[in-house]
């Protein structure tokens, strides 16, 4: 390997990563690193309570968001082990990223829930462990 990547190039391409990102922007750096906030997935958890396609259609939820609900339905055991950093966990009935996709459909209008689910789904499909997925979520949303 040679040294053909310059610092200037590195810095110049960095902003491109901001364009078209599915995860949205975030602050300059994370002052608080949360390492142990993630819930343990409930044994035998299913996606039965996640809003259905029909329910989402009734609410005229856009296709892009419906696809994210599809992703969550594929991996309830993972999504239930991820803390959602949108702040919903303090509300009654919420405990994990999975519950953000339950019947009240809060995730349909929450970019943090949506971005987290896309990140988690991508990494789950890549075969990453729950622990590594949690760290990736922490790094971006904590």
């Amino acid at each position: 390997m040679n040294d053909s990547i310059s610092r200037r190039r590195f810095l110049s391409v960095a902003p491109l990563a901001l364009v078209g990102t599915a995860l949205g922007s975030r602050r300059v750096s994370a002052p608080i690193v949360r390492m142990d906030a993630h819930p343990e997935p409930r044994p035998g958890i299913t996606a039965d309570e996640v809003m259905t396609r029909e329910q989402l259609e009734e609410r005229a939820v856009e296709d892009r968001v419906r696809e994210i609900f599809d992703m969550v339905r594929e991996m309830p055991q993972i999504a239930d082990g991820i803390d959602c950093y949108c702040g919903c966990a303090v509300r009654p009935g919420y405990r994990s990223l999975l519950t953000c996709y339950y019947a009240d459909g809060m995730a349909a209008g929450c970019p943090i829930c949506q971005g987290s689910a896309q990140l988690v789904h991508r990494r789950w499909k890549d075969g990453q462990s729950l622990e590594r997925i949690r760290r990736a979520v922490d790094a971006r949303y904590a």
Binding site: D3, I5, S6, R7, S29, A30, V33, M35, R135, A136, D138, A139, R140, A142
Partner: peptide, 17 residues
């Protein structure tokens, strides 16, 4: 980079990241 060394520091975002 080439003949130049840029001092850097790793800013922790999460364990290992």
């Amino acid at each position: 980079q080439g003949t130049e060394d840029y001092p850097v520091t790793m800013v922790r975002q999460a364990e290992g990241i």
